[in-house]
């Protein structure tokens, strides 16, 4: 809902979700669904490589030209 409000004023947004069903309901414009537990949107503490992979996948959605809502599953497997 915060994401929708920001996109509404003309700013491009991208987010991470831990609960895909919630994203399907709220339909933020660009969402990366990650296979991690609550409190772990970037994967693991002190794992910069994994955190950068998640960020890179999410930022990649900015270059996706499909019409929103864009909901992609992360390629990372746990």
């Amino acid at each position: 809902m915060i994401q929708r409000a920001i996109e509404d004023v003309g700013i491009t947004t991208v987010s991470i979700t831990l609960v895909e069903n919630v994203a399907k309901r709220i339909k933020p414009p660009r969402v990366l669904s990650v296979p991690f537990g609550f409190g772990h949107p970037l994967g693991e503490p002190n794992n910069p490589t994994l955190q950068h992979t998640v960020i890179s996948e999410a930022l990649g959605l900015l270059e996706n030209n499909e019409p929103p809502p864009i909901l992609k599953r992360s390629l990372i497997s746990t």
Binding site: G10, T13, I16, I55
Partner: peptide, 22 residues
């Protein structure tokens, strides 16, 4: 409050907002 933040981001000339939940 969400529109307030959106307005502040406009004031700051932000191009992209990156959102993370818990």
């Amino acid at each position: 409050t969400a529109p307030q933040v959106a307005k502040l981001l406009i004031d700051d000339k932000v191009d992209v907002a990156f959102l993370t939940p818990v």
